[in-house]
Design a protein around this nucleic acid. Structure first.
Lengths: 112, 112
DNA sequence: CGGTATCCTTTTTGATACTG
DNA sequence: CAGTATCAAAAAGGATACCG
């Protein structure tokens, strides 16, 4: 591992990162917002079959509080709200790619 | 995102990766085995305060079944068993590093 | 349209005791 | 030493109904 991490400190920091992404629907939401995509609450609801309003709202709230997603309210009637990645959130992309790359090595290596 | 992933396929694949690492104690176990470290069951038990035998056994079993950790039994009395990362498991390192790097950017960027 | 509030089920984790 | 088995607690997720 890079840096001056003990097993404990590295694990602790990674736990906190995983906590940001932990939740049945968060990755799906994130991938629907990656690359500058902007979506309204109802867009996400339509694009993510099976999600309830409660869970969508809850997971969006957490992503927002954690600085990964930003929420924009338009003072209109009827109400309009949309969501996009923060620039920090968008930078998750390469890190997630590294995980995908790792996973794809398993085909060649497993059982070795 | 690299590759030809839809939001759904990328999220699905990442979910399966996170599932491998999901568990209250797995990251701690992994970091105690990274870089070629070899540990007996009782070593891990001592080094991970608060873990119960049940949880240690359970999480080790899952890591083993998922090909991340390998288990070696020595035919001795009293029994001796030890654990180490598989080479695929060891390659998690750079991917986890990418996540740590991402996280450390948050100090500069959050609230932007 | 974009949410909350309530209640219930499922999944995960933990405490404790026991065993080859 | 290296585990299992059993039972209980806690956390996460889901169904449904209602609201500004």
């Amino acid at each position: 591992m890079a840096k001056n991490h003990t097993p404990e400190s590295a694990a602790l920091e990674l736990e906190s990162i995983f906590k940001l992404l932990k939740g049945r629907w968060k990755l799906l939401i994130i991938f629907h917002l990656f690359d500058g995509k902007i979506q309204r609450f109802s867009d996400l609801e339509r694009q993510i079959p099976g999600i309830s309003q409660k869970m969508l709202a809850q997971q969006l709230r957490e992503l927002e509080n954690d600085g990964i997603v930003s929420r924009k309210v338009y003072p209109e009637v009827p109400p309009k709200v949309d969501y996009r990645m923060t620039s920090w959130g968008q930078e998750l992309c390469p890190a997630l790619d590294a995980l995908l790359t790792w996973n794809e090595k398993s085909e060649k290596q497993k059982g070795e």
